[in-house]
Amino acid sequence: MAKRNKLTHRQKRQVGKNLSKKLNKDEALPQDDNLEPEESGVVVGRFGQHADVRDSQNQVTRCHIRRTIESVVCGDNVLFRRNKESGSAINGVIEAVSERDSLLSRPDFYDGVKPVAANIDQILIVSSLKPALSSNIIDRYLVASEDVGITPVILINKIDLADEVALAQVDTLTTLYREIGYRVILLSCKSGEGVDALQAILDEKVSIFVGQSGVGKSSLVNALLPEAEEQVGDISEMSGLGQHTTTSAKLLSFKNGGELIDSPGVREFALWHLPEERVTWGFKEFRDYLGGCKFRDCKHMDDPGCLLKEAVDEGKINPIRFENYHSILKTMAEQRPNHSNQY
């Protein structure tokens, strides 16, 4: 597939104007005298200009979103009003979004930094032996988790597919991340390995699955909540990549407490919106050495007096993580939008 040219800032502004015109042609919202009093709810799904809101009685109402509201995502606590007369597919209006305790976002080239989910207690980073077990991708999610201050847990799925070589790789990565201080759970939906351990950490928390397409997020949801009946996708034989099965984020509830947000699969979690210094800080074992290098503009490569490089050479920082760090910075530079062509 040919690479698409990037939009200039002028083009982006025009896209925004066109979108605004389109929204102004949307179906008019109900007048206030046609609405019930405000009540509280939580957003369990977002679909274009509408969102599904669950009330205190676990009833779900599909609502319009006031155009004055900047963003609405899964997990948001909101005030909404129902239509006095039902009968339409859209039976309410979201009036306001409460202040968020946490927000997970990801950069989108056309939309800027795009919110994914709100009020999350922990991020469950799902990787698997197929399509590929990649510490680089895991580290991208870990940096994103550290940046927003949400506790990450690493899930390595499809462990039943592991041969001796794969088991050695899993053992290496499991040891690496546990030594840094991250929790790692090995999983198999087929054998049931690790499912009880996963269920235990989900109780009484709001969690979100993130990970590449095809790593088995939907299969894990089905193992935890069989009634969810999530569609499960296959791995493409040509590309070796997973096929998208979840098309919009949704919030699911457990009978014994706790909630889970199943988000659309992303094959690569970009970090180009973050300053390089923030990415460096996102590798938490680096923090003891930051600010101590000989030169203030140290690139942490072969710079004289680089404390990070010395720590790698002395075995205090794992070379896999150090290599992933530089790989992430390189990819960020390549992905960051070019602002030189804005006029």
Rank of each mutant, 00 (worst) to 15 (best):
T247C: 07
C298L: 14
S191V: 01
L308C: 08
F269G: 06
Y289H: 13
E227S: 07
L198T: 03
K309V: 04
F254W: 08
Q199D: 05
S236A: 12
C298I: 12
A270H: 11
H273E: 15
S253F: 13
L225E: 09
E310W: 00
E276R: 12
L274D: 07
L290S: 04
E193P: 02
A197K: 10
K255H: 12
E277D: 15
F322S: 08
S207E: 03
L198Q: 08
E237Y: 07
K217A: 05
E285I: 05
L271M: 07
I317D: 00
F269S: 01
F322L: 09
E268M: 06
T280N: 11
H244I: 13
I320V: 12
L224Y: 05
I317N: 04
G315M: 10
T280E: 13
V210I: 06
A197H: 11
D234F: 07
I320R: 15
N256V: 01
V232K: 03
S213D: 02
C306Y: 04
V232E: 14
L252H: 07
R278K: 14
D262S: 09
C306S: 12
F283N: 08
D196F: 04
L220C: 11
A228R: 00
V232A: 02
G291V: 04
L224W: 02
S218Q: 09
G305M: 13
K309L: 10
K190L: 10
K250P: 00
E310K: 15
E227F: 03
L202A: 07
R278I: 07
K316S: 13
G233H: 01
G282E: 08
N256S: 14
I235C: 04
F254D: 02
G258H: 05
G211K: 11
D203A: 12
L202Y: 03
F254Y: 07
E314F: 00
V210D: 01
L307S: 05
L224T: 10
G315E: 09
A200K: 13
E204G: 02
L308G: 09
M238G: 04
S248A: 14
R287Y: 05
S213V: 05
K309A: 14
D313I: 02
T247V: 08
S263P: 02
I235H: 04
